[in-house]
Design a protein around this nucleic acid. Structure first.
Length: 300
RNA sequence: GGCUUCUUAGCUCAGUCGGUAGAGCAGUAGAUUGAAAAUCUACGUGUCCCCAGUUCGAUUCUGGGAGAAGCCA
């Protein structure tokens, strides 16, 4: 018997709308699994649900952090598990919605490690070039080092950080096991062309709704350009525009392209995840609800 | 109307002292020990604007044509 529903799919595929429909009929509550919607004030660019939607159906793990705070997959898994248990205890249906694959993996695995981190160490590692990082990692965790490409300084740096703090190879930790089977997984499938058009349209809407002002407001509030959510799609491009890296008329194109590329990466990641229900244009909501009820044991 | 410059991959352009061509971006596929809306990897045949001439051979040289931009009228 499944404990909760997960709705996954590329960005702009319509996850939120489907989630709302399911929540209405299944007495559900939504748990956000999107690494940007977690943040307060990042509304337009993160395509957050509207206040009306949030009022109608409870949404969890939205607006729980301010822009300069750190979050990670392990924290998400812990928070989401707590919410799932809480929602179930009230005899409602938890529905996890979002496109952040790493967070989903964390939630779906038992023994997903709470790896150490240190912002101080991170600062010092930032000054090293990739060769120096590689040398360090070869010393600290040669096995892990083999897995990371020389140009992937993001992973090299984090791997050095982990190995240093851990004091041993990350490979010595017990491997996590899957508990994905606890979730009824719905995948939103949408053809590339349609998605591409939707993304372009949504980018325009974001700008029309005042994405630039939202970014300026966040900056005024003291959120750094370098803050994590400011690196995300839409925000990063607006910052570039503000810094005159490119022109206003190019902004829509930049955001659209970055979003499409992200959607493509999501599809690659989700391709290998087993799904319980593929939702596409021909799907019927009644069918989905029936299948979901069966899996969740909601028929009586 | 005259002069000048340009016309090469979906886009912006490089290049070939004559032997049919390559970068960036876009696109496609992939990775993901977890900072992930991040980060990284692989993949490059296209009437080299058209027609004719010279040549063993022209995208490259010559002539003509078409289109674009700038300057002068």
């Amino acid at each position: 018997m499944k404990k909760y529903i997960s709705i996954i799919g590329p960005t702009a595929s319509g996850k939120s709308a489907l989630a709302m429909n399911l929540a209405r009929t299944l007495n559900g509550e939504l748990i956000n699994c999107d690494s940007v919607q977690i943040y307060k004030g990042f509304d337009i660019g993160a395509a957050k649900p509207s206040p009306a939607e949030i009022q109608e159906i409870p949404h969890h793990l939205i607006d729980i952090l301010s822009g300069h705070e750190d979050y990670d997959a392990r924290s998400f898994a812990r928070d989401a598990e707590e919410k799932i248990a809480d929602i179930r205890s009230r005899n409602k249906t938890p529905i996890v919605v979002g496109g952040t694959g790493l967070y989903l993996r964390a939630l779906w695995q038992d023994g997903f490690h709470d790896l150490p981190k240190s912002s101080e160490l991170r600062e010092t590692l930032k000054d090293l070039n990739t060769d120096e990082l590689r040398q360090k990692l070869d010393q600290l965790d040669p096995e892990r080092s083999k897995e990371i490409h020389g140009n992937d300084r993001f992973r090299l740096q984090r791997a050095v950080e982990i190995a240093s703090l851990l004091g041993h190879s990350i490979k010595d930790l017990p491997p996590p096991s899957s508990k994905r089977t606890e979730s009824f997984v719905i995948y939103l499938q949408i053809d590339r062309k349609t998605l591409s058009a939707r993304i372009a349209q949504r980018s325009q809407i974001m700008l029309d709704q005042g994405l630039i002002d939202e970014v300026k407001h966040l900056l005024t509030q003291g959120i750094s350009e370098k803050a994590k959510p400011m690196q995300s799609i839409g925000y990063h491009e607006v910052i570039q525009y503000i810094n005159q890296v490119y022109k206003k008329e190019d902004l829509i194109e930049k955001i659209t392209i970055a979003t499409r590329q992200y959607a493509k990466r999501q599809e690659t990641l989700f391709r290998k995840i087993p799904k319980d229900f593929i939702w596409n244009q021909d799907s019927s909501l009644d069918d989905l609800i029936q299948v979901a009820k069966d899996h969740l044991g909601l028929n009586r």
